[in-house]
Amino acid sequence: MWKWRLTAVGVNLLLGIPGIVPVWLLWYFVSNGPLAEMGYTRREATENDGMMLWLVIVVPVVVVFGILWWLANGPVRRRVRLDPLLYWPAGVLLTLVPTLALIVAGSV
């Protein structure tokens, strides 16, 4: 069973590499849209196409990545035999590790 847990970690870390793109798109949309309207962030100075274009780009990318992530993790979760309330949040956090590593590396 330990090799399936290692497989689960590997699958989620590897999926986190292309997962950088949807995370960045979500941040860009939120920081230029709702957070900028509330005054928490500033809009990108060259962003003058409107947010509808970004929604047309963000939604399909995030949905496709989410489906691929779910399809990859479903069979692994059944073999790991962990509680779903533990497996799915751990999978999400492991998928975010590459993005967080880039954020830390970029701030150094």
Rank of each mutant, 00 (worst) to 15 (best):
M51N: 03
L26C: 10
V97W: 01
S31P: 09
L14C: 13
P75F: 06
T46I: 10
V64E: 08
L86F: 15
G91D: 01
V56A: 15
R79V: 02
G91N: 10
P98H: 05
V97C: 03
L6T: 14
L53D: 08
L93R: 05
N32H: 04
R5D: 00
R81C: 14
T99E: 02
E47P: 00
L55N: 15
W88A: 00
I17A: 11
V76A: 06
L86C: 09
A105T: 01
G39E: 05
L13M: 08
L15Q: 07
R43T: 14
T41E: 04
V56Q: 11
Y40F: 12
L25Q: 09
W54Y: 13
L26F: 12
A72H: 00
N12G: 04
I57H: 08
W88R: 02
L94M: 12
V21Y: 15
D49Q: 12
W24M: 15
I17M: 12
G74C: 02
A45R: 13
L102Q: 15
E44N: 07
P60H: 08
T7G: 05
G50D: 02
G39A: 07
S107L: 14
M38E: 05
G74T: 15
T7D: 07
L102D: 06
W24N: 06
R78M: 12
V58D: 05
I20E: 01
A105D: 03
L25Y: 10
G74H: 14
G19H: 08
I17R: 11
P34F: 13
I17L: 14
L25G: 07
V9K: 07
G39M: 07
T41H: 04
G10I: 02
R42Y: 06
F65E: 01
R42S: 07
W70A: 04
V11A: 13
G39S: 08
V30E: 05
N48E: 10
V63I: 13
V30N: 02
I103K: 09
A8M: 15
L26D: 04
E44M: 08
V56W: 12
A90I: 15
P22Q: 01
P34D: 03
R42H: 06
M1N: 00
P60R: 07
G106D: 00
R42V: 03
A72T: 02
V63K: 09
G50N: 02
L15E: 04
R77N: 02
T41M: 08
G106N: 01
M38V: 06
A36P: 09
P34N: 02
L82N: 09
L102C: 15
V92W: 09
F29C: 02
L94R: 05
I20S: 00
